[in-house]
Amino acid sequence: MTAIWGIVNVTPDSFSDGGRFLAADDAVAHGLRLRAEGASVLDIGGESTRPGAERVSPEVEQARVIPVIEQLAEAGVPVSIDTLNASTAAAAVRAGARIVNDVSGGLADPEMRAAVAESGADYVIGHWRGFSSDMYARAEYRRVAREVAGELQERIGEAAASGIAPSRLIVDPGIGFAKAGAQNWDVLRGLDEIVALGPRVLVGTSRKRFLAETLQRTAGGETADLAGVSTERRDLATAVTSALAARAGAWAVRVHDVAATRDALAVVHAWDGA
């Protein structure tokens, strides 16, 4: 069964739930709810990577996430830290995190790979071409799935050279990162090229803009106005894409709504006779 990662954003400005779980107690309670609904891992983030997001210092980031990680780890919950910063990754692993989820694949902080290698944690390598402030200017591709796979292969080699064993690696095609609109669908349709790289594959489509654009078009609306695409509709689309990603070979999917995705995966597995 494909693993489900539950998202816990300990931020004031994440695109769909910013501010809801900024207090540590609220974040922990939310994480435990996601765990009860079927999350295998809780992915804790203290810095938003939404388009146009402002960077925060590692000190601010750590003040947000470390108390949450400590409490969840003490409760026996597998935790991932979603960070671009090597110092935050190291602090999170000391606090009990088992996985470092770096959407930049080691490009944002040159110390990240060494920090992960020393920590012993598993490492998610995301496909990334730049910070959120200007990432869409870098969304130039001829064959997007093949180019994403090629760039991830480079990051895999860099991780290996830094002493991170292949068994510790997970790759993420970076849906929504330096990819606009239909390019995300092209990557998902070409997921077999990502799976063929060898490491476990994590896919995160949850509530992202390209889903809302698709839903708005089906309703006959203008894609520039996405306010009418509710969270519930985005969660349904997320569950469908997560189930299709699982069928295409994804090892895990990263979502806000764990229960809906759990049900979608159960239906697909039943359909496939699993």
Rank of each mutant, 00 (worst) to 15 (best):
A243S: 13
V116W: 12
W271D: 12
D263I: 01
R155V: 03
I164S: 09
W271C: 09
D172L: 03
T238S: 15
A239E: 01
L265T: 00
G31R: 00
S119V: 04
A159S: 14
A274F: 14
I164D: 05
D263L: 12
L191G: 04
W251D: 14
A160C: 06
A36F: 00
Q71G: 05
A149M: 06
A252H: 05
V240R: 12
V203K: 06
Q216E: 12
G181W: 10
K208Y: 06
A108C: 09
R138E: 09
A139H: 06
A259I: 00
R142A: 15
D272I: 01
A245F: 04
Q183L: 07
R113W: 04
E70L: 01
S57P: 08
R189V: 00
L84I: 11
A24T: 11
R113M: 15
T83F: 09
S133P: 00
G163M: 09
V116G: 10
D102M: 09
P110V: 03
L191I: 02
E74G: 15
G46A: 04
E232W: 06
A180L: 13
N101M: 11
P12F: 01
I44C: 11
A161L: 12
A246V: 01
A245N: 05
H30A: 06
H30S: 00
L191W: 06
Q62F: 07
W5F: 15
A224Q: 14
P166F: 12
V41P: 07
G163Y: 13
P51L: 13
A165W: 06
V8E: 04
V255S: 10
L34I: 01
V28G: 03
G204L: 05
T205A: 14
D186E: 15
D235R: 06
V187R: 08
W128Y: 14
L72F: 11
D225N: 15
Y123L: 06
A248D: 14
G38Q: 00
F131M: 08
A91V: 04
A266G: 12
R234P: 07
R234M: 09
T241V: 13
I7F: 01
A219H: 15
G45L: 00
I156A: 12
T238Y: 05
P58G: 08
G126R: 07
A63L: 10
V195G: 07
E147M: 12
A95L: 09
L42D: 03
T214R: 14
F210V: 03
D257Y: 09
A182I: 08
A92I: 02
A260Q: 14
E111D: 15
P67T: 07
I81S: 06
P110T: 03
D17Q: 03
V10Y: 08
A264V: 01
P166S: 07
G76D: 05
D122G: 12
P51K: 12
V229A: 05
T11V: 05
P199K: 04
G174Y: 07
V255D: 10
I69R: 12
A182S: 07
V229D: 11
A227S: 15
A274L: 15
S14N: 04
D25C: 02
R94S: 14
A63I: 02
G249E: 10
L34N: 00
K208D: 02
A92F: 11
